[in-house]
Design a protein around this nucleic acid. Sequence first.
DNA 1: TTGTAGGCGTTATCAG
DNA 2: CTGATAACGCCTACAA
Lengths: 331, 331
Amino acid sequence: MKAKPTIIDVAKRARVSIATVSRVLNGVHVREESRARVEKAMQHLGYRHNKIAHGLVTGKSGVIGVIVPGIVGHLYGQMARGIEEVVMAQGLHMVIVTNTRNAAEEKENLRLLLERQVDGVIIMGSYLNDEDLLTLKSNVPIVFIQRENPPFKSRYSSVTIDNRSGMEAALQHLLKAGHRCIAHITGLRRDGFERQKLFQEIIKRKNLCDELIFKGNFTEEKGLDLAGEVLRHKDITAVFCSNDRSALGLYRSLHSKGVRIPEDISVVGFDDEPWTAYLEPPLTTLRQPAREVGRLAAKQVLTEFSGEAKTKQHTVPVEFVERASVYKINL
Amino acid sequence: MKAKPTIIDVAKRARVSIATVSRVLNGVHVREESRARVEKAMQHLGYRHNKIAHGLVTGKSGVIGVIVPGIVGHLYGQMARGIEEVVMAQGLHMVIVTNTRNAAEEKENLRLLLERQVDGVIIMGSYLNDEDLLTLKSNVPIVFIQRENPPFKSRYSSVTIDNRSGMEAALQHLLKAGHRCIAHITGLRRDGFERQKLFQEIIKRKNLCDELIFKGNFTEEKGLDLAGEVLRHKDITAVFCSNDRSALGLYRSLHSKGVRIPEDISVVGFDDEPWTAYLEPPLTTLRQPAREVGRLAAKQVLTEFSGEAKTKQHTVPVEFVERASVYKINL
DNA sequence: TTGTAGGCGTTATCAG
DNA sequence: CTGATAACGCCTACAA
């Protein structure tokens, strides 16, 4: 009647061996009578299965590690939620660590996770390179979501947003609406650069003016600053922002300058953050299926962990969300 | 040169005993030379400390469990971030599970966490009652953030928002601005009810009309619906919404009806969600110091876990955020 | 300062 | 179907 009861205590009270207790614990068949006695004993003693000890012998911790970038934001939250969803359904748990942006810290976080014997790791927006991974010699599956560096030559899975299809859809929409002089406020990191590259590629392919690139940094402030420069080009009729926050900055500046959206300038964002629908006018943007991305990543680690399943590079499409921030010139 | 090396392997290679290896692992002093040899051996072998085994013998898992309500939202994310911050600083980890709203599931989640031998638990918006807790006989500290039921008679810590001070501040502001006929769109759960009660109490104390209560449910839709009813009372000059989402609904309906904010109707929200500053006009609201709440809760579990520290009921103030949605009548 | 040996709570193997 | 008993990897008196 003192500290935590163990299977030994249960076994004694049920007058069976600890092996039998272990069996009922793990759903192995035992005689009905024994099982009943064991269960009663557990009940009585307030026994609780110790997953630490269990993990030590089985070599599985039942935990998936998740590393998320320090920047808060809605997207990462959704991804984490998606991961938790499938992880939980398997009776596993998820430990989250956030790394305040730098490769060294990320590596350290990963190391700690591995010490904890996680059964798999999911890293969002990783900065790690092949070499880092190598020195850590992880033996568990790692899958990367929206990794920053170019894909590994190596053996890791990944889940990546299909920026291309999104950009194509959005620009198509703009073109159909009659826009011919479209500016782009760029962003940072992999997504930012990729989007810029795609923007330029598509614009060039359509034979439009491809010089209207404004260097942004994914922040509202920058979007706000850039508005002036954008307005200096009188023929710009639409601005494609690399993310919603830039679009927000642009909105505010345009509003304050008395420029009408979308009549004077059309705006398109990227991410579909929850508040974009509340803007005036509601922002046309591209939605990242963040939750689904999380689910995918989680499923990938799990199958890799519990089988021979090979690594795989997933690409998920983004969805074009039409709202009211694009003016139809040709109507 | 095969599977995971253990301290035994390290000990052999360093020609010391496993005890010595363990010592350098745990920062106990050993002769400089031995330490060097051990470290070199670990390096060479690619040794990794196994925290599962470590946990089994020490009885500490080094993990704090966190249960968050299924509803996503910005606040819970911030709280989790605050928890992770302090937990991480102690070299611990945090496992998050979300419960899709119902006491049974919450209890089950807690049970699983305890099986995992977490060193402490933080539950946000819990629905558990004394009895539930009792049957689980947790031996680790549990602290509740914004628990739904009335405080325990029992021995658990909590962190709670000081709705009162917030309501006082907001209403004071409204009164100073000359508003005398103020409506309230109510919310749900503990916070909703508490805010309503406080609203009525304060209004009555000030000898104002206290009948203008509109039954909301924390959602945008409801806020939108209620706008009509609010407008029917011609003398209402301000509406205090129980949360920002209700305020948002009100905004949209008012806008669509051509009612001006704040000239015709002033609006105050609660929560200070990130997008409230982007509304037109920016919403005056009350900020919950969510991150700080998380930190507090985490510190509380940690001190309770690692010492005799008694349980404690924390109350954190909310901050009044003045923006542009309140009209100064008397100026 | 270092080594020996006895656990920590479970599972797994192998006889009965 | 059940029961000993040896791991699992590490920590920690206790001894040396």
